[in-house]
Structure formats: C-alpha cells, structure tokens
Amino acid sequence: MDETGKELVLALYDYQEKSPREVTMKKGDILTLLNSTNKDWWKVEVKITVNGKTYERQGAVPAAYVKKL
C-alpha cells in the first residue's frame, strides 16, 4: 500500500497499450491498483513524468502482467 492506503501492484512485464482504455507500463513499474474485480484486466493508475511534470493516467492492464505488493 502507498501512503494514502491504496493498494500497489508491480509490473512483471512490459505492456504497450492497444486502445485508449489501456495504459502502457514497463517491467518494474509500481502502479496504483484502482479495481481488480475483473479477473483478466485490472484498472490501474500510472504516474508519467514528462519534462519534469508528473501526470496521472488511469487505464486497464492485463492482470497476469502485474502482481499485488
């Protein structure tokens, strides 16, 4: 869990989004888990830093590609 009490997951593999509802992640990324009720796809929040600014993006990733921490 992070400092706000939200559950975290670890990306076990790289994943490139294939639709606007998904998010890209790299192996080793730590993501915030938002919903894991679907056994195949979990909704997560990814933090992306671009030019020193951090953005948050929500989307789905394959459940088999992440592990709860």
Rank of each mutant, 00 (worst) to 15 (best):
W41I: 03
T49Y: 10
T32A: 08
K26R: 12
L69N: 00
L12G: 01
E45K: 10
L12C: 12
T37A: 12
Y65H: 07
K68E: 06
P20A: 11
P20D: 13
V44E: 00
P20T: 09
G5H: 14
Y55P: 00
N35I: 07
I30R: 04
K27N: 03
Y13E: 10
L69R: 01
G5Y: 13
A64N: 12
D29W: 10
A60S: 14
E22V: 03
T32Y: 09
S19T: 10
T24M: 03
P62G: 03
V23S: 02
D29L: 04
P62M: 05
I30K: 04
E7S: 11
L8T: 07
R57F: 09
G59M: 08
A63M: 04
T24C: 04
L31F: 07
W42Y: 07
K27C: 07
E22G: 12
D40N: 11
D29R: 02
Y13N: 08
R21I: 10
K27P: 03
V46D: 00
S19M: 05
Y65K: 07
G59S: 01
V44D: 00
E56R: 15
L8E: 06
Q58I: 13
Y55F: 13
T4G: 14
D2Y: 11
K43W: 15
Y15H: 02
Y55Q: 09
T4A: 13
G59R: 01
L31Q: 00
E45M: 14
T24N: 04
K53C: 12
W41H: 01
I30M: 06
V9L: 09
L10G: 00
K67N: 04
E17G: 15
G5A: 12
V46L: 11
G5Q: 13
K67D: 07
W41T: 03
T24I: 04
V23Q: 01
E3L: 14
N38I: 04
G5R: 14
N51F: 08
N51H: 09
E45D: 02
V66C: 13
V44C: 01
K6H: 13
A63C: 08
A63W: 03
V23I: 14
Y13V: 11
V23M: 07
L69K: 04
V9M: 03
L33V: 06
K67F: 07
N38M: 07
K47L: 12
D40E: 11
L69W: 06
V50R: 10
V50S: 09
N51P: 03
V9H: 01
L31H: 03
A60W: 15
L31C: 06
K6W: 08
E7I: 14
G59F: 10
D29V: 04
A63K: 05
N38R: 07
A63P: 07
W42G: 00
L8Y: 15
I48V: 13
E45G: 12
V46H: 07
G28L: 02
Y65G: 07
D2K: 14
M1Q: 13
W41L: 03
D14P: 03
R21K: 12
L31P: 00
R57L: 08
V50L: 11
R57G: 04
E22W: 03
N38P: 04
P62E: 04
I48R: 07
N51D: 13
D2T: 13
G5M: 12
L34V: 11
T4P: 13
K39C: 12
I30A: 00
E45Y: 06
E45W: 05
Y15Q: 01
G59P: 00
P20R: 08
D14C: 05
L10T: 06
D29M: 12
N38D: 15
R57S: 05
E22F: 05
V66S: 00
A60P: 01
A64I: 09
A11F: 03
N35V: 06
Y15C: 05
A60G: 07
